[in-house]
Design a protein around this nucleic acid. Structure first.
Lengths: 135, 135
DNA sequence: TATAGACCTTCCAGTAACTGGAAGGTCAAG
DNA sequence: CTTGACCTTCCAGTTACTGGAAGGTCTATA
């Protein structure tokens, strides 16, 4: 049984985050020592690691909660997990498309900007212009 | 001089957001009517539009503040603006790379997952595994 | 004139997922 | 016995809004 600092080190999460996950009941410690320290057993270390990995994949904490309950469920089907993952993939693709569009437009503007001491700048000009959005 | 609702409509921003921008002194109304309503003149409408566009490009509100001061500055140089834009482009590229990596890994996992009633699932398996991160 | 509805005002609280800090208890080493 | 590194709780701040309540104002219509 590790206390919070050791559990943090073992799972690669900041101590504060582990405490936060306990508070929101995402991963609750297996118990407390007599002096009130949080104690983490192997099962909880696995869950913390699981959450760290899933978060790194961009899953929200609430998604992690779903995933964790499937992870814990001996009778889960892989279909459940896959559908959550696919849903998530769609979101990633949307963000990706937005960012790519943004990147293309902004780098175009930056290229058009001569970037010297003169005051006129195509970037600012494109931000100004007619008021209402015409998308 | 437009009141807040009209200004919002004219610039394509939600009323709440316009009020928020006034509160954080990003774009302050040119005045108040006798009954206390915020009033927006043309200059402020331009600034609001400017901010909406810059925000759509992913610039943070604080970046917008920088940009806005350059925008207002008659003696600005385009170099200042360009350097902010380039800084921002680098950030976009980093996010893009992260997302692409994420997408590749997750779609690989989803493909490997048979997605039926069986409990074993490569996605969950990859989230579990050894504790400490080995990046 | 009454009243309905659509405006406007302020202030308070909540969102997501932490992070930082203060005040104080505990523990091991030198 | 003190120093430093732990741990605890609680409170506040972050980003950029968004929602809602309570209440004032304006305009049209019956």
């Amino acid at each position: 049984m590790l206390n919070i600092g050791e559990a943090a080190k073992a799972t690669g999460l900041p101590t504060k985050t582990v405490r936060y996950y306990a508070e929101i009941e995402l991963v609750v410690p297996s118990g407390r020592s007599e002096n009130g320290y949080r104690l983490y057993a192997d099962t909880e270390l696995s869950k913390l690691t699981f959450v760290r990995r899933a978060r790194a994949f961009g899953f929200s904490v609430e998604r992690c909660r779903e995933l964790l309950s499937l992870y814990e469920d001996q009778n889960r089907s892989s279909a459940n997990v896959k559908s959550i993952a696919l849903r998530h993939l769609v979101e990633i693709e949307e963000k990706l498309a937005d960012l790519q569009k943004l990147h293309a437009e902004l780098s175009h503007l930056a290229q058009a900007c001569h970037g010297d001491a003169r005051p006129d700048c195509p970037i600012l000009d494109s931000f100004a212009g007619p008021h209402s959005r015409e998308e």
